[in-house]
Every structure is written in structure tokens, then in C-alpha cells.
């Protein structure tokens, strides 16, 4: 169970907020549950709701509202390409097409081997680095065509080598 297995981390999160306001811990606990279970399905939502004494539907609503919570299966690595203005005029469209081609999926889909999910996302505050993406919320700047293959290979090798992954970005490095 989530609480028993991650007691120290959860207690640490709860300690940040007033004792009568533990609902504030909802977003951080959902991130944790998402990493542990790979996505936020009914059971994991129910577990988080129980830890915080919240109705299931309240938590369900929150999961649906925020784009970084996944209620469907995603790969081990979620690739988020910004296609906003100005990125879409600075190589983002070409990058999405290139990734779709190499991965054999469309944006919004997951590869058959469940390694990569590709998404188009809104501004990620790195406009000067366009075309830019996040892989499990780690920034990859100026992903020009000659860098794509090497990036994908490294990410795939990390997964195959058993390097810990966090789709919630809890382990994100620079």
C-alpha cells in the first residue's frame, strides 16, 4: 500500500501544511502515486483519497484537471514537445513529425513496447531553446534534427539498463 511503503516521504509532505489542511498535500501525493503505479487509475486515486480523507470524486476531478496527471497508460518516458508560439515557428512542427516518424506513432500515442509516449504540450518556459521538449519533465534544449536519434537511443538505453524513471518528474535532473 502506498502509505505503508512510502511513509517517510508522505509524512514529510504532510508536515508542510497545517494539520487541519492536509488536502494541500493532494498534488504531491498524486505525483507519488503516479510514479509508483505508472498512472492514476481508480485504485490509486482511491488510495490517495483515503490517505487524505477526501471523497473519491474530489480526487478524480483534480486528476482530470491537470495535464501532468495521467489517467491512461503512458510509456516509461513521456516526451512533451512544446508546439506553442513561438516554438511552432522555430522547428517544433518538424520535431514532432520527426519523432512521430522515428517512433512509428502519432502525437498522443504510446509505442508498442511501452517505452515512449509522445505528446504536444503548451508553453514550457524555455522559448529561447526551441525546438524544446521535456522527457519525464527533464529539459532537452534545441533538439535539432541531428540530435534526435542520439537522444532517443540514450533514453531507451537508460530504461533498458533499469535506470529509475519518474514520469512525475520527481527525479528530474538538469
Amino acid at each position: 500500500m502506498l502509505y505503508e511503503q512510502h511513509k517517510a516521504e508522505i509524512d514529510g509532505i504532510l508536515a508542510r501544511y497545517p494539520v487541519d489542511r492536509k488536502r494541500s498535500a493532494l498534488l504531491p501525493l498524486l505525483y507519488l502515486a503516479q510514479d509508483v503505479y505508472g498512472r492514476l487509475n481508480r485504485d490509486s486515486i482511491r488510495e490517495v483519497a483515503e490517505i487524505l480523507d477526501l471523497p473519491y470524486t474530489d480526487v478524480f476531478e483534480v486528476v482530470g484537471f491537470y495535464t501532468l496527471f495521467y489517467n491512461e497508460d503512458v510509456g516509461k518516458i513521456v516526451l512533451d514537445v512544446c508546439d506553442d508560439v513561438p516554438c511552432c515557428f522555430c522547428g517544433a512542427e518538424e520535431l514532432v513529425a520527426d519523432l512521430e516518424n522515428r517512433l512509428g506513432i502519432k502525437a498522443g500515442e504510446t509505442t508498442k513496447d511501452k517505452v515512449f509516449t509522445l505528446r504536444r504540450v503548451k508553453c514550457i518556459a524555455a522559448c529561447d531553446q526551441a525546438p524544446v521538449l521535456q522527457a519525464n519533465l527533464e529539459f532537452h534544449n534545441r533538439v535539432l534534427p541531428d540530435k534526435v536519434e542520439a537522444m532517443l537511443t540514450k533514453l531507451r538505453n537508460d530504461v533498458e539498463a533499469g535506470k529509475p524513471v519518474s514520469i512525475s518528474g520527481r527525479l528530474a535532473e538538469r
Binding site: L27, Y31, Y66, L68, D80, I124, A125, Q134, L137, E138, F139, S168, G169, R170, A172, E173, R174
Partner: peptide, 9 residues
């Protein structure tokens, strides 16, 4: 913001 995962850590 959630996307600043590194920044938060």
C-alpha cells in the same frame, strides 16, 4: 509550475 520539476528539487 509542475514542469519545473528540476527547479523544484
Amino acid at each position: 509550475r509542475g514542469e519545473f520539476a528540476y527547479g523544484a528539487r
